[in-house]
Design a protein around this nucleic acid. Structure first.
Lengths: 287, 287
DNA sequence: GGCCCTCGTGCAAATTATTTTCGTCGATGA
DNA sequence: TCATCGACGAAAATAATTTGCACGAGGGCC
């Protein structure tokens, strides 16, 4: 667990003095990592010993250990405190996009449930056929990526972005098949319908979506991805990075489960690419 | 510039003692952020003042300032020193995927040229028609995403993953059109051919690819994305995250340049989605 | 060749920061 | 009302960091 989360979640059980310290840490992070214990104590209107005790309370050995921990986490985790980029200059826009993407990955990681992923990977690795569904641009990308990751591991898989097609595919699916559906909003009613139908037929359904949404409620296994979106309508959603990373994690776990099949399949693909391209076998699988 | 890079690149001009310090920092980062100045000095076989002077040299105010800076950077930038995940457990795999993705974003950001992006965005924003090309799975995603980002800003744009089609589209393109092509390996000869043809016809060509590759050489404007790939064949390439972020940056810059058109177009899209979906206008544009 | 300057370095002292100790205060409950 | 407990700060003790100074090696100039 990172220290930032520890402070956020533990805030309620701190003493009044410690809460004042916590508020400064959460509110003015830049100050906190650069301040000495005395400066921090003064600003929180407490004594230095109280700060030391606070550091011990949140699991650090000393104040400097605490500061290092804070700085480590913060590079990523804190940026959502500075909501928008400073300008529309390329430099600032780039920084904003990258920071938000890193932050989305960070937050997603924090909320991820490894046991669930294990289960998801298990079902996919044992599926006779995998269907990946997603529409609307963002989820289309995720569905396609899921196919792109899985076919090279030897899975039988097809992606679809088309609601009608998804419904037909679902109706045609059989017991040992698996449907993986993505919905950023969780409001894709057509996808929810597919999930409902599939479950009636005893087919495994896996959703990558917002927790506690219609799509989530319709699926059997739900990988919840709940991230705050920035207010800037001109910026693409950084949540895509989190979804993409989840796809990667799941695909990696499937690869390890079907290690032999994956290895053989990957080798076959690589062989064809090297022969057809330029013989450089260090290049990636698939341009 | 981050401190890690400063040390890496400045290493040659350090004095012998300072080089010893630098080597410890680069080699055993965990030790470095947790050590006191005395411990670090002992290990480098120098005196504490030398360490302080070193910190000043690399642009920090004091040793503690230096440690904070190091810790900030390191959470991201150092992971490529620990090449692979510890195990195939979901927890470790997830951490590995996320860290590598964050790292890819970090490294890409470091190498990004804002002036070039400005130029790229300018050309795209003024294009009468934009063609986005990419094949082979990864670049297909990038080409599709580029379309997906641009159309909602009012750009006229089409994506193609099909080599034959790309060639035909290129041949049919006119002077004020722009072709954006993605190639992770830089070895996509068909894409290079399109670029060459387009340049002969005076059409702007923009490549997202490895610097100094056949594709890069064929294009007019090259956004170079050069990242080391991990050795683990079971893991999807983390470079995708970097490419995707570049798409986002470019799209954002285009949005700001065509602010009026973007706003109107986005509003029209949102209106349709809200009416057709569930009236919740806080959800993202496109699921 | 010798002289002087510069740079890198360590030592020791001075300064500064952090931690520990100990005692007070106020709340709680018998 | 008084004992007890936890939170807290003052001051002392300790530890870490920085500064000032001096020494020695290497290089250029006379």
């Amino acid at each position: 667990m990172d220290i930032f989360t520890t402070i956020q979640e533990g805030r309620a059980q701190f003493s009044p003095s410690e809460q004042r310290i916590a508020d400064i840490l959460l509110g003015d992070f830049e100050f906190a990592v650069n301040a000495s214990i005395i400066e921090l104590a003064e600003r929180a209107e407490v004594s230095p010993p109280t700060v030391t005790r606070f550091c011990r309370n949140v699991g650090c050995q000393s104040f400097s250990d605490f500061k290092v921990n804070l700085a480590k986490t913060a590079f990523i985790g804190v940026r959502y405190l500075n909501p928008e980029a400073k300008s529309t200059e390329p430099k600032d826009v780039a920084e904003d996009v990258i920071t938000k993407a890193q932050n989305a990955l960070f937050m997603m990681h924090r909320a991820l449930d490894p046991a669930l992923l294990d289960k998801v990977a298990d079902r996919i690795s044992r599926a006779e056929m995998v269907y990946t569904f997603g529409s609307g641009g963002n989820s289309s990308m995720i569905a396609t990526e899921m196919q792109n990751r899985l076919f090279r591991l030897g899975s039988r898989v097809t992606a679809s972005n088309d609601h009608n097609m998804q419904l037909m595919l679902t109706a045609a699916a059989r017991t040992n098949d698996v449907i993986v559906g993505s919905s950023f909003s969780g409001r894709n009613q057509d996808l929810a319908r597919c999930f409902t139908l599939a479950r009636e037929n005893g087919i495994t359904t896996i959703a990558l979506t917002q927790s506690d949404s219609p799509v989530a409620r319709a699926a059997e296994l739900v990988v919840g991805i709940d991230l705050p979106e920035g207010a800037n309508i001109f910026r693409p959603t950084s949540t895509r990075f989190a979804f993409l990373a989840v796809v990667d994690v799941i695909a990696s776990l499937v690869a390890y489960r079907n290690r032999k099949l994956s290895t053989v399949t990957l080798r076959h693909i690589k062989q064809q690419l090297v022969e057809h391209r330029d013989g450089d076998d260090r290049q990636i699988l698939g341009d």
